[in-house]
């Protein structure tokens, strides 16, 4: 059986909020290493991969592999019943029909309990190869969100160009064009504001801004975001979560026909 207790319901609430626009139904794969999720969006252009390691929970118990097929709209409805600061416990039997969520207030004696019916989800599972990326950019997640939002006002697509000069986000639309260039930057007062660019060869790729702006819903999970790029492979957008856990988005590049 599964029993996984999170100190703050907020973490799961934010993860689900971040992916619910991309994915409707997905399996939460539970085993002794933690809870993992991998799902493609309907158009198969983007892929979400989440890992909540067992260390992120206290305690965490899962004796065997359990797949919880959950409709994210239903999960969102139930998670709205939890206060951000509540302690959240997920429970399921070995061959479950439902997943049980318990929310406890640390400050009062309130205890809420909900069951969500599970679904059988036959999901295509993609083996994501370990990739040595040509360029990695680590930057404030709020900055990436702002750039994405600003350029989305002008265009559907953004070109991300990474050279030794820096990283340039640029777009062209009906009303005109725009670009934002970032260079490596170290902020002595606040390292969350640092921009670090690790480049082994120049990269230039084009992506859908609509998808990137969806990924940016995860900005509340981490002050930093890491973008990893190589020519002609999907972009990796990664938000680090506590205890070495992560939320990753992969986005196929737009390629000239």
């Amino acid at each position: 059986m599964l029993e996984a207790r999170l100190e703050q319901a907020n973490l799961l609430k934010k993860v689900v909020d971040s992916i619910t626009n991309l994915v409707q139904d997905c399996n939460f794969d539970c085993n002794d290493s933690g809870i993992a999720l991998q799902a493609m969006d309907n158009s198969h252009v983007a892929l979400v991969a989440m890992m909540l390691r067992s260390d992120a929970f206290s305690p965490f118990r899962c004796d065997r592999n359990i797949a919880l097929g959950i409709n994210l709209t239903s999960l969102t409805k139930v998670l709205r019943c939890a206060q951000n600061e509540d302690i959240l416990t997920l429970k399921a039997e070995d061959a479950p029909d439902v997943v049980n969520l318990v929310f406890e207030s640390a400050e009062s004696d309130r205890l809420s309990e909900y069951d969500i019916k599970l679904m059988d989800i036959d999901q295509e599972h993609l083996g994501i190869p370990d990739t040595e990326y040509a360029a990695s950019i680590t930057m404030p997640s709020a900055e990436f969100q702002r750039i994405t939002r600003d350029l989305l006002a002008l265009s559907e697509s953004v070109s991300i160009e990474c050279t030794k000069e820096g990283v340039k986000f640029s777009c062209q639309g009906d009303i005109g064009s725009g670009s934002v260039t970032l260079r490596s930057h170290t902020n002595v007062d606040n390292e969350d504001r640092n921009v670090s660019i690790d480049l082994s060869e120049p990269v230039s790729l084009m992506f859908s801004l609509k998808y990137l702006s969806n990924f940016c819903k995860a900005s509340g999970l981490s002050s930093r975001v890491k973008l990893s790029l190589s020519n002609e492979v999907p972009l990796l957008v990664e938000y680090a979560l506590p205890s070495n856990s992560f939320l990753r988005f992969y986005l196929a590049p737009k390629i000239g026909d």
Partner: peptide
């Protein structure tokens, strides 16, 4: 013309 490539073209089926 630019088209959006589907992601599974890049990743092997596991």
């Amino acid at each position: 013309k630019i088209f959006q490539t589907q992601i599974f073209k890049f990743f092997l089926n596991g």
